[in-house]
């Protein structure tokens, strides 16, 4: 069980600490996003350290958008040196979608190449240049995948590429369409990927019709089926939030029953305090102190 925390737009880590404290005991680890949606926030490594302070294991997200291969490898080394146990490597949103649309997009590596680089650094003690590392870094390497974006025939294969590159766990885009997700899981299982990689399904609540419209219209790669739309529009305005929370809890339950799914990743931007409610609704109780528990299970 994992969850997501977005660092604040401001020079204070208290927000990360307090969110992590709310989640402590409920999740095994928290993702700290890396300037999510290409909006400037406090960095994911600083946020990760704050989460560790608060007694929650961090998953440091890292994108290829803002850094070339030199900076990426340097930050990966630093993360390991600071004791950050998990990294989640992705290409990242394009700057054009964020609050600094005029910024230079770097994309020196793509997510697969960054994953490959991280695995080489750790397992072969080598940089991309071939130079030796002493000592080698040590983290659990994660990646992301969107089972709902076309081309449908290639999405499981693309994960296979990331696994070959070195991904040991993968977190998915928000699951709202269970049949499509189950079909993707079947393909992933057939490729033998569940043996080599933990699949963690992304889940999150839609707490207002405005959020629903935003997610349907403006969030690339997000698929919300019509029945979800009908269900949320079918309740009185003051009950949408509760219905959205209930729906998220139901999805948590449903995805956990799909063979091959190792865990659930809950994303509730700006409403991290509601995550325990979703987990409770799904019949998942609080657990012990999350630090020192097994990775991403």
């Amino acid at each position: 069980m994992t969850a997501e925390i977005g660092p604040p737009r401001g020079a204070d880590l208290a927000a990360v600490r307090s969110k992590a404290e709310i989640l402590r005991g409920w999740v095994d680890a928290v993702n700290i996003t890396d300037n999510q949606g290409s909006h400037v926030r406090l960095s994911s490594w600083a946020g990760s350290l704050a989460a560790m302070d608060a007694g929650v294991e961090p998953v440091m997200q890292m994108t290829c958008r803002d850094r070339n291969r030199i900076a990426l490898q340097s930050d990966l080394l630093s993360a390991s040196a600071m004791g950050i146990p998990n990294v989640l490597l992705m290409t990242g949103d394009h700057p054009k979608l964020g609050d600094h649309a005029e910024a230079k997009a770097v994309f020196d590596l793509d997510s697969t190449q960054l994953t490959w680089t991280a695995r080489t650094m750790r397992d072969e003690c080598k940089l991309l240049s071939g130079r030796a590392l002493d000592p080698a870094p040590d983290w659990f390497i994660g990646a992301v995948e969107n089972p709902f974006a076309p081309p449908e025939g290639f999405r499981a294969q693309r994960l296979a590429k990331k696994v070959a590159a070195g991904a040991e766990f993968v977190q998915t885009q928000f699951v709202f369409d269970i049949p499509v997700f189950a079909r993707w899981m079947e393909q992933v299982t057939d490729l033998g990927l569940t043996e080599r990689c933990h699949i963690i399904a992304g889940v999150g609540p839609i707490r207002s019709l405005r959020a629903l419209d935003h997610m349907r219209g403006n969030v690339p790669g997000l698929h919300i089926p019509d029945e979800v739309d009908r269900r949320l529009r079918g309740v009185p305005a003051d009950r949408v939030a509760a219905e959205g929370m209930r729906l998220a809890a139901e999805i948590v339950q449903l995805v956990r029953e799909i063979p091959g799914v190792s865990g659930v990743h809950v994303m509730a931007f700006g409403y991290e305090r509601g995550i325990p409610e979703i987990l409770e609704g799904a019949g998942i109780g609080a657990r012990g102190d999350s630090v020192g528990s097994d990775h991403a299970d």
Binding site: T91, P150, H223
Partner: peptide, 18 residues
């Protein structure tokens, strides 16, 4: 994003570039 290893996760259901 000059991705060499396949499409990103932002492809629209209709195949649109994000």
């Amino acid at each position: 994003k000059q991705m060499r290893n396949g499409p990103c996760g932002g492809v629209g259901a209709d195949g649109a570039c994000e």
